Amino acid sequence: MDSPPSPILSVEHVGVRFGGLVAIADLHFDVQPGEIVSLIGPNGAGKTTAFNVMTGFLRPSQGVVRFRGTALAGLQPHEIVRLGLSRTFQRTSVFPDDSVLDNVLIGLHRRTPARLLDTLLGRDRASERRLRAEARDLLDRVGLTARADEKAGALAYGEQRLVGVALALATEPAMLLLDEPVSGMNASETRVFVGLIRAIRERGVTILLVEHDMPMVMAVSDRIAVLNYGRLIAQGPPEAIRSDPAVIEAYLGQGSAAREAAMRAAQASPAQTSPAPVSAALEASHA
């Protein structure tokens, strides 16, 4: 009998404290190779803190994160990237006065820093041509080929986030962590981004996603883990999360918009069981 595959990422009973404040308490979940997993929760639930622990920007107070079996404790962010775990950030991180193409080239040069000086001085033209071709391929993958020669700072916010994805892909990750990637995008842009996530997965990259756009999360995720006040309260496939009582309670308590959405859904379908009101509440609470 074949043994189950080893997780590519394991978060093992991680806790984070800032003085007397508990930001994360006993967080534990695995991500299998090839999955798209979303980490969701109300504002302040600890999602970005968890990402910072996984990528070396923050040390946990307890527990350990393992990537491909390697404990990440004590490793610097650039060392974790070299292991194959890369991320994007909530805020755009482009070089605004450089072209979109040059932004991606900078990311590619970071992968091979020893050759950077030779390339800049024109001593390695073959390498530069190869990197430029790779940069244009990355821009094509994220849909920014037509913007290659424009200044990155002149792009719309959603397009700048796509540059961030291209920069992350330039590190050739085995796993990509996306922190609120569709923030600032309209519905059409979000649909395109869902296709991009699936295309990235088809190239063999595992994805862990933090996102507030609930319809997008439900559409793209294989599994969802839910945080509330720093604690894992549920995990499972989207259809299970929609009707999980703990998730209902967490989101219905977030404000009048969520409660009113749930009430309207219940009144429109009085015989309906909880999943429809929950779906409406999840979406309203992140509107």
Results as ranks from 00 to 15, higher is better:
residue 72 L to D: 10
residue 149 D to T: 13
residue 1 M to F: 02
residue 38 S to F: 04
residue 217 V to K: 07
residue 168 A to L: 08
residue 133 A to G: 13
residue 127 S to H: 14
residue 93 S to W: 01
residue 46 G to E: 01
residue 27 L to C: 15
residue 53 V to Q: 12
residue 139 L to Q: 00
residue 18 F to T: 06
residue 110 R to I: 07
residue 115 R to A: 14
residue 224 I to M: 05
residue 164 G to Q: 04
residue 93 S to F: 02
residue 278 V to N: 15
residue 60 P to N: 13
residue 243 S to M: 03
residue 161 R to I: 03
residue 204 G to D: 08
residue 73 A to F: 06
residue 194 V to I: 12
residue 277 P to T: 04
residue 46 G to V: 03
residue 276 A to T: 10
residue 61 S to F: 13
residue 171 T to M: 11
residue 26 D to A: 02
residue 234 A to P: 06
residue 132 R to L: 00
residue 254 Q to I: 07
residue 236 G to K: 11
residue 134 E to T: 13
residue 211 E to F: 06
residue 228 N to C: 12
residue 42 P to E: 07
residue 191 R to C: 00
residue 161 R to F: 04
residue 280 A to L: 05
residue 262 A to I: 01
residue 58 L to T: 11
residue 112 T to S: 14
residue 234 A to C: 06
residue 31 V to C: 04
residue 56 G to R: 10
residue 81 V to A: 15
residue 204 G to N: 09
residue 65 V to M: 04
residue 41 G to H: 03
residue 35 E to P: 05
residue 100 V to E: 07
residue 116 L to D: 10
residue 230 G to W: 15
residue 181 P to W: 12
residue 89 F to E: 08
residue 285 S to K: 06
residue 107 G to R: 05
residue 73 A to V: 14
residue 192 V to P: 00
residue 15 G to V: 04
residue 262 A to C: 03
residue 224 I to G: 00
residue 79 E to M: 06
residue 148 A to S: 15
residue 268 A to C: 01
residue 250 A to S: 05
residue 221 S to M: 09
residue 187 A to V: 09
residue 117 L to R: 15
residue 159 E to Q: 15
residue 53 V to Y: 11
residue 231 R to S: 12
residue 236 G to E: 03
residue 3 S to M: 07
residue 33 P to T: 07
residue 194 V to Y: 02
residue 267 Q to C: 02
residue 258 A to N: 09
residue 132 R to P: 01
residue 7 P to N: 04
residue 39 L to Y: 02
residue 129 R to D: 13
residue 166 A to N: 03
residue 83 L to C: 10
residue 194 V to F: 00
residue 21 L to F: 14
residue 82 R to T: 09
residue 188 S to E: 15
residue 260 E to I: 12
residue 18 F to P: 08
residue 73 A to D: 14
residue 63 G to F: 11
residue 200 I to A: 11
residue 102 D to Y: 10
residue 88 T to I: 01
residue 97 D to G: 01
residue 18 F to D: 06
residue 96 P to T: 03
residue 57 F to H: 15
residue 190 T to E: 06
residue 36 I to R: 09
residue 113 P to A: 05
residue 89 F to W: 13
residue 137 D to G: 07
residue 14 V to N: 08
residue 118 D to W: 12
residue 126 A to E: 12
residue 229 Y to M: 02
residue 164 G to T: 06
residue 69 G to R: 10
residue 118 D to T: 01
residue 63 G to P: 10
residue 6 S to R: 13
residue 177 L to Y: 08
residue 89 F to H: 11
residue 253 G to W: 08
residue 75 L to Q: 11
residue 148 A to D: 09
residue 228 N to M: 04
residue 279 S to K: 11
residue 249 E to T: 15
residue 40 I to H: 04
residue 225 A to F: 09
residue 230 G to F: 14
residue 37 V to F: 01
residue 57 F to V: 03
residue 51 F to L: 10
residue 168 A to D: 08
residue 102 D to A: 15
residue 174 A to S: 14
residue 24 I to S: 07
residue 282 L to Y: 07
residue 159 E to A: 11
residue 133 A to H: 03
residue 260 E to T: 10
residue 57 F to P: 00
residue 251 Y to N: 05
residue 130 R to I: 02
residue 38 S to H: 02
residue 205 V to M: 04
residue 177 L to T: 09
residue 228 N to Q: 13
residue 161 R to W: 02
residue 241 I to Q: 12
residue 98 D to R: 14
residue 7 P to T: 02
